[in-house]
């Protein structure tokens, strides 16, 4: 049974306590736990969240499996989400996805063997005037072309190698 540092547990618990109902803090708690556990929610994170928030485990699992940005399986260090909604679709997101897949050797929903990237589709990123668009980690990339994708991945790999992970 994995535990979490007391400081983190206290932070999570205090956050819940600040609402009229502790459950309001659940999604925030799950986001924090996800960050703590390397990007996803292992089984023990569900148990921990239930304990900290004070609700039954199935309620936590129900939430953890409902939302697009909560992961119950391990993911890469960086998540690539490519918008495949209508405006990006018109502007060629398929070729962006194809280039990423070819370059990383993974399919949609998969993680590279080195654990660096997970590739996922995403709902419209609200950046339609600069389609096609994607996010890698916290960064937004727009007006993409397949060649630009290569450049972006190159620079990420380069900075990762330089220790800038």
């Amino acid at each position: 049974m994995t535990t979490i540092p007391d400081l983190l547990r206290k932070e999570l618990s205090d956050h819940c306590a600040h609402y009229a109902s502790r459950r309001v803090g659940l999604i925030w708690v799950l986001q924090k736990l996800q960050a703590h556990f390397g990007g996803y929610l292992p089984d023990e994170a569900i148990t921990l969240a239930a304990e900290i928030v004070g609700i039954p485990e199935p309620d936590v699992e129900g939430v953890a499996t409902f939302y697009n940005w909560l992961f119950r399986e391990p993911v890469g260090r960086r998540i690539i989400v490519v918008c495949d909604s209508i405006s990006c679709h018109l502007c060629g997101c398929d070729s962006i996805v194809a280039r990423i897949q070819k370059r990383l050797g993974i399919g949609m929903g998969e993680t590279t063997p080195d654990g660096e990237f997970t590739l996922l589709p995403v709902v419209c990123l609200g950046n339609c005037d600069k389609a096609p668009t994607m996010m890698i980690g916290d960064e937004l990339y727009d007006c993409l072309t397949p060649d630009k994708v290569d450049e972006i991945l190159d620079s990420i790999y380069a900075s990762a190698k330089a220790g800038g992970r």
């Binding site: 999604i27 409902f66 939302y67 697009n68």
Partner: peptide, 25 residues
């Protein structure tokens, strides 16, 4: 601020409220 965990249906106001309460949206 509340940072959503991401789901289109959260834009529906009652689903949004459920989501904010820490429930399935």
């Amino acid at each position: 601020t509340h940072l959503s965990a991401g789901r289109y249906i959260c834009g529906e106001e009652t689903a949004l409220i459920n989501s904010l309460e820490g429930r399935r949206a």
